[in-house]
Design a protein around this nucleic acid. Structure first.
Lengths: 259, 259
DNA sequence: CGATTACTTGAATTCACTCAATGGCGGTGG
DNA sequence: CCACCGCCATTGAGTGAATTCAAGTAATCG
C-alpha cells in the first residue's frame, strides 16, 4: 500500500502552486497523521448532511461527488482522482452538501480536520495553497455547468474525457494516451446528465469516429487533438499553467509521483 | 450611492460566519480602499482570460458569471447579488476562467487584490471567512449542476427562483415575498440551460399555477411552500444555518444591512 | 460455471428546440 | 405628446435530440 512518502508527494504535487513549498512546509504535511483505508467500488465515503471531523485524501482509485433528486435520479458533479481531497470543504462548512462515493476500488487516507486547520494556521502559504485548490475545484464546477447545460451528449462526453485525461496526466497517471478507466456507463451518464442508454450510443459514436478506444478497464485516446475539438475543450479553466509543481512534474517526470 | 458604512456592513454580513468578527477585524475591512463605479445593464465587468489586479464587490444590482461555447451559446453558471465578490478567485488564480457581466444597472466597488491579500495575511480569521465564502459558492455550483443536469425545465426554474429568493433574503432584499427582478427571460434561459422560448412557456406555467407573480420589474412568491416543493428546494447547500451574522440579521433585522 | 451486473440495440415517445410571426412595453426624438 | 423603434415576451407549428421501455448479449465476480 502507500507509505508516507508517496502520500506527501501526491499532496505537494496538488498544492505546489504560486510558489514551491519550503522544507519546513513539506515536513508539516509529512507529519500530518493519516489512516489509510481500502474501499470497494460504489461505497459511500461520506454522505450528504454528515458533519464529520475527518477529511480524506484519495491515494488510489476514483471517486465521485453526487446528489440524488427526490425521484431517485442521480447527478454526479465531480470526479475525484488520486491527490484530491474531495471533502476539503469540511474545513469550514459544518455539513456535507453532497455525498461522495468510490467509483472503483479505492485507497483513501483519513485525517483530522482539526489537524489540517492547525497546519493551515501555522503555515499561511499551505493554507493559501489549499485555498487555491478549492478555487480550482470551483472553476471545474463552472465548466461542468457549461458542459451539462449547453453541450449535446456527444460533445459533452468528449469534454468530460478530455478533462479527466488532463487531470490524470497532471498526477502522472496516463501512459501514452491510455489510462485506467473502470467507470461504468451508468456512472458516466450520471456525470453528464444523460441516460445510460444514450451514453452507450454516444460512446459507440465516439469509438466509431476513432476518438476513443475502450479495452477492458482502460481507455485510450489515439488522437488528442481530435478529441479536444470534439469536446470543445480548452484547459484554461484547470489553471494548470500557474501550478509550479505540476509544471516541474511534467518536465522532469518524477518517479515519486507515480503512485 | 453607498457609503463606507453600508459597504462594510454588506461584507461583514456575508463573511460573518463561524465566529463574529472583532472590532479590529471589522476595522480592517472598513479600511480597505474601494472605488465605487456605476454600470449599465449587460456590461462585461471582467472577461474570461483576464488577469486583473482588482476585484469587485457588488453594492447594488445583479450580475452573472457566464461562458460562451464556440457556436455562440451562452451558459450562466452563477448569479451574483449585493454583498457578493464574484471574482474573489482572482486572489489565488492568475486568470479568469469565466466572464462576469451586469444583469441590471449595477454599482460595484473595486479594490486591489493585493490589499485584500494583505488583510487576509494579517487577519487569519478574515481569511478563513473569505475562504468559507468561496466554499459556499462551490456548494451553490454543485447544486447548479444538479439543477441543469437532472431537473426538467419547470422544476429547474422553480429551483433557481427559490435559491435567488433565499440568498436575497439573507441580505435583506426581500419584502413580503417580493423582490426586484429585472432579469430577462433570455438571461434566465442561459442560467438554466434551456431556450428563451421554452423559458417563456415554463414561466407562464408557473404563473398559471400561482407559484409566482410578475409585475413590472418585480417578482412575488405568494406561496413559498409550494414553490419550494415545485423546485425540489432544500436550502441545506446554502450553508446558512452556521452563518452567525445572517442569523443575527434575520432575528434582529438590523437597519444597517439594508443597502 | 452460474448469477449478477454491465452494455447494446430497436422502437415508440416526449420534452424541449428552432423557426417564424405577432403583440406589448419603454424610451427617444420629432 | 404622440409616433416610432428596439427590445422583450408570447404563441403556433414542425422538428429533433434524448428519453423510456423492452429485449437480448457480453462481461465479470464469487
Amino acid at each position: 500500500m502507500s507509505d508516507r512518502h508517496s502520500l506527501s508527494a501526491l499532496m505537494i504535487l496538488k498544492l505546489g502552486s504560486l510558489f514551491t513549498l519550503s522544507d519546513e512546509e513539506t515536513q508539516a504535511l509529512h507529519d500530518l497523521p493519516i489512516q489509510a483505508i481500502d474501499l470497494k467500488s460504489n461505497r459511500d465515503i461520506v454522505r450528504i448532511g454528515d458533519s464529520s471531523l475527518q477529511c480524506f485524501l484519495i491515494l488510489e482509485g476514483y471517486a465521485s461527488s453526487y446528489k440524488l433528486t427526490p425521484d431517485g435520479q442521480r447527478q454526479i458533479m465531480a470526479l475525484h482522482i488520486p491527490g484530491d481531497i474531495p471533502d476539503l470543504q469540511s474545513l469550514y462548512l459544518k455539513r456535507m452538501d453532497c455525498s461522495i462515493a468510490s467509483l472503483s476500488p479505492c485507497t483513501v487516507g483519513f485525517f483530522q480536520v482539526e489537524e489540517l486547520r492547525r497546519v493551515c494556521a501555522r503555515h499561511p502559504r499551505i493554507a493559501a495553497a489549499f485555498w487555491r485548490d478549492t478555487l480550482v475545484d470551483a472553476s471545474i464546477l463552472r465548466e461542468w455547468v457549461v458542459n451539462v447545460g449547453r453541450r449535446d451528449a456527444y460533445t459533452r462526453i468528449a469534454h468530460l474525457l478530455c478533462e479527466f485525461l488532463v487531470r490524470l496526466e497532471a498526477v502522472g497517471l496516463v501512459q501514452g494516451g491510455t489510462f485506467d478507466f473502470p467507470i461504468t456507463q451508468a456512472n458516466l451518464a450520471d456525470a453528464t446528465g444523460i441516460s445510460a442508454v444514450h451514453m452507450s450510443r454516444a460512446l459507440k459514436a465516439l469509438r466509431d469516429n476513432g476518438l476513443i478506444q475502450t479495452r477492458r478497464r482502460y481507455l485510450s485516446v489515439p488522437d488528442w487533438q481530435k478529441l479536444q475539438e470534439a469536446g470543445e475543450f480548452d484547459p484554461l479553466y484547470l489553471h494548470l499553467e500557474d501550478n509550479v509543481a505540476a509544471g516541474l512534474l511534467r518536465t522532469s517526470q518524477l518517479e515519486t509521483a507515480a503512485l
